Amino acid sequence: MRLAFMGSPDFAVPALHALHGAGHEIAAVYCQPPRPAGRGQKETPCPVHRAALALGLPVRSPARVRKDVAEHAAFAALDLDAAVVAAYGLILPKPMLEAPRRGCLNIHASLLPRWRGAAPIHAAILAGDAESGVTIMQMEEGLDTGPMLLKGAVPIGPRTTTPELHDALADLGARLILRALAEAPPPMPQPEAGVTYAAKLTKEDGRLDWVQEAAALDRRVRALNPWPGTFFRHGGEAIRVLAAEPAAGGGAPGTVLDEAATIACGSGALRLLRLQRPGRGPLPAADFLRGFPLPPGTLLG
């Protein structure tokens, strides 16, 4: 089948490899333009761009596509059977959605209609969902509103982190898109009940509010690392919390309860396991506390 692949981050790479390995003709790979990255702010291609180059595939990285008539024409000229989209990062306009003979198929990292939007993997862990999954969806102009072709579920355990769930869903998405192209299942409209939205995350979403219950803060730490990261403020610094777990204890929210960095929450307590100061490397809590003490009774911000 003659395809375009449209994706940018690591999540999309397994699907690109699967489509290439299955023998589909990939006429073009679309991804976000290179961005400044690292201390030197060197222009760096995204993961899909790098994977496409390694496979010898042609890459297009327009900064915008919604109103670019020339880009619409170039896309139509590819004469595609279908386009596969996975976390591309740009909104496709109607002329591009309708250009391929079988339209554009999206690999969405949730069990639609739950968690439409930008950050479905994080949202599922934050909410305490028992499972997540992947939906292969026929794209339309609405935000993740198109009819569904296939679904697959992945359980979320009590200690599941976003990186773990991300990788499981990326692999599942790669398998499901091959099935969707081969089997052409009939599209099913999304149910109107159960729609939720996963908003785009900001750094401030990572601030730990000790008034919340320990279970919710534990989910926040597991959901928001490595990005945007979770943190609290103390001594004029934003201290990153890279790993934590619920613990027994109680007291005024934000109070350090013991020498093991157990912090009282609105309900229960959270034990900090791995921490990082600005400009420093991450450390186990015991090592961190030797250089940055948090004595019992300390009130954290």
Rank of each mutant, 00 (worst) to 15 (best):
A243P: 05
R233M: 02
P155D: 14
E140P: 02
L178K: 09
A215K: 12
A243I: 03
V211C: 06
D129H: 05
I239P: 07
E140R: 12
G194H: 06
A182E: 14
E164N: 02
G251P: 10
T162C: 11
N225G: 03
A118P: 00
L201S: 03
P185R: 13
A244P: 02
G152V: 03
Q212N: 08
A238V: 00
E141P: 03
G146Y: 05
M139K: 04
M148N: 10
V154N: 08
R116K: 14
D218S: 08
V241M: 01
W115A: 13
L178F: 05
K151H: 12
G249L: 14
G142C: 09
G236N: 02
E141M: 09
A223F: 08
R207G: 10
M137G: 04
F231T: 00
I136T: 06
N225D: 01
E141G: 04
A198L: 10
G250N: 11
A216V: 09
A243N: 07
A123S: 15
D144Q: 10
E204T: 14
A216P: 01
M137A: 07
G206H: 08
L224H: 00
G250C: 09
P228M: 12
L208F: 02
D144C: 11
L217P: 00
F232G: 06
G152D: 06
A238L: 06
E192A: 15
L169W: 05
P186C: 10
A127I: 10
L149Q: 04
R116C: 07
A214G: 00
D205R: 07
E183G: 10
R175W: 03
K151L: 07
I239Y: 01
W115I: 12
D167L: 11
V211L: 09
A124K: 07
A182M: 10
G152Q: 07
A244L: 04
H234Q: 08
V134H: 00
P246E: 03
P113Q: 07
A238R: 13
P120D: 14
R116Q: 14
A223M: 05
G146D: 08
I156M: 07
P187L: 04
L150I: 06
N225W: 00
G133C: 12
W227L: 10
E237M: 09
H122W: 06
P113N: 06
A184D: 15
G251Q: 07
A123H: 09
E141T: 13
H166P: 00
F232Y: 10
G249T: 14
L143H: 02
A180C: 05
I156E: 05
P191Q: 08
A198Y: 09
L172A: 01
A252M: 10
L149G: 03
E213P: 00
M148H: 08
Y197P: 05
R240Y: 06
G206K: 05
R116I: 08
L143N: 07
S132M: 01
A223N: 00
Q138I: 01
V154I: 15
R220M: 14
A238C: 03
D167R: 15
Y197W: 14
A174H: 01
A174T: 01
